[in-house]
Amino acid sequence: MEAIQIDGLTKYYGKARGIIDLSLSVKAGEFFGFIGPNGAGKSTTIRSLLGLISPTSGKASILGNDIVTESKKVLEKCGYLPSETAFYSGMRVGEIIKFSAQLRKKDCNKESKELCERLQLDVSRNVDELSFGNRKKVGIVCALQHKPEVLILDEPTSGLDPLMQKEFFEILNERNKEGATIFLSSHVLSEIQRNCTRAAIIKEGKMIACDSVNSLSKTNTKKISVVGDFDVTKLTNARNIQKVQGGTSFLYGGQIQDLIAQLAKSEISDVTIAEPDLEEVFMHFYVNEKANNGEKK
């Protein structure tokens, strides 16, 4: 069964765009990445899935439950970590975590204790005094303690230190192995590349790519590093040109023969041709879109 199924989901805030005709499906048990810059519509998509906002048109379901008509069932099966977590003023960390479990009518004592320990979260502290990272940890415990089948995470690592991020992704991977579907929205591409099997890229409310992370990285673009004297400007399809010590590096999307011919003519001592990482692919999608838009105008 599809864990998340979105068909033509559209959301306008008045006249302002949220998302336009978004369709994607995430299989149960997948670790799915959702990539896009700020304001692309990542949070709008997530908030629609959780019933916090109602879509203008289109449909979506989580584990077969419609997000509009069966919102309560959807929420029972989901754990959600918002990008900015806010809690009731004056409550202690432990009270918030317990309150969250009570709202789900579940006893999650054992699980929450373990999570707090792993994330080094002090439950006796007042939530008003917490730093951004510590508030995030409270959010993580609330999202995970009831062992949801689908985990929806909106920029989960902002504010967490590298050690905590590592621990957090370990927990996510354990959950994923136990069968949980994970929907990870982020603009930190390296964490998508390390953890996710598939990913979708959205831009200005529209999805521009959706594929496995491996094939997304394997576009016909190559990352070229040259040591020596090389004139990149003679190549038509070179982008992201960077002068590094003793050489040049760039992304190349044209014919390989042209590249080799050009290399052969130059005084170079070394060359590396590699797959670009996701970050560069991401830039590629965005630059391409920009170029296309420019041509249209």
Binding site: G51, K72, L75, C78, P82, F87, L103
Partner: peptide, 8 residues
């Protein structure tokens, strides 16, 4: 957001 993302 916290409240309404619970099954209520």
């Amino acid at each position: 957001e916290f409240l309404l993302s619970h099954p209520v």
